[in-house]
């Protein structure tokens, strides 16, 4: 027991535990769920094959995300490349697993995300949703921590503006009113989704 390498069984178990996250990250990169699962599967297998080069004790999630991301960007012609988001498809995907009102907010968010530059979107998703630190995200994306911080902050700002502009139609003047309306909608969505989870199952 000199080298603290993970044995295959332990590695496999940890990798299997990360599948949901690989799928979620892939979904944020790809245009649709099928392409995303293809990408996530390839990344999982690639991680398995490369297991000897993983240093135990380091963050396996960040390591597998790096593999997935490299795969995504290195094979640009593959089907999993993000296609122009088709709002109808996005809507169908979302409405399938959420109540309609909350789905509408998520749709606004998802549509907003598609307007962001790719590098900002992935930084925001990794930090804001994937639970990765700025440092880990910087490693995954192969850039400086400061770059990630500024991408995330620009993405947050841009997203708020995009959502404001798309939902501000009924209060053309005054930013405050538009954001209040947005907050109201979000609040309603929160209440609805927390209150209706019991009967949301078909």
């Amino acid at each position: 027991m000199t080298q603290p390498t993970l044995d295959d069984e332990a590695f496999k178990a940890e990798l299997a535990g990360l599948i949901p996250h690989l799928r979620a990250f892939a979904r944020s990169l790809c245009g649709n769920a099928t392409a995303a699962d293809d990408l996530a599967q390839e990344a999982m297998l690639k991680a398995w094959k490369a297991r000897a080069s993983y240093q135990s004790g380091t963050n396996l999630k960040a390591w597998t995300f790096t593999i997935l991301r490299n795969l995504f960007y290195s094979e640009k012609r593959r089907s999993w490349r993000r296609q122009q988001l088709d709002p109808e498809v996005a809507e169908a995907t979302l409405i399938a697993n959420d109540d309609p009102s909350s789905a509408m907010d998520l749709l606004a968010l998802r549509t907003g995300l598609t307007f962001l530059p790719e590098d900002q979107r992935e930084a925001l998703i990794l930090v804001g949703a994937g639970g990765l630190s700025y440092e880990e995200t910087a490693e995954i994306c192969g850039c400086a921590v400061g770059t990630i911080k500024s991408r995330v902050s620009r993405a947050r700002k841009a997203l708020a503006e995009i959502i404001d502009n798309t939902q501000g139609g009924f209060s053309g003047d005054g930013k405050l009113r538009a954001s209040e309306a947005f907050d109201d909608i979000m609040k309603q969505a929160d209440e609805l989704s927390s209150g209706s989870t019991a009967d949301a199952t078909n």
Binding site: P20, A24, R27, S28, L106, L109, L124, I125, G130
Partner: peptide
Amino acid sequence: IGDQLRRLYDEVT
């Protein structure tokens, strides 16, 4: 936005 972003991700996980 942060809450919704996490929800979007968690829907998949």
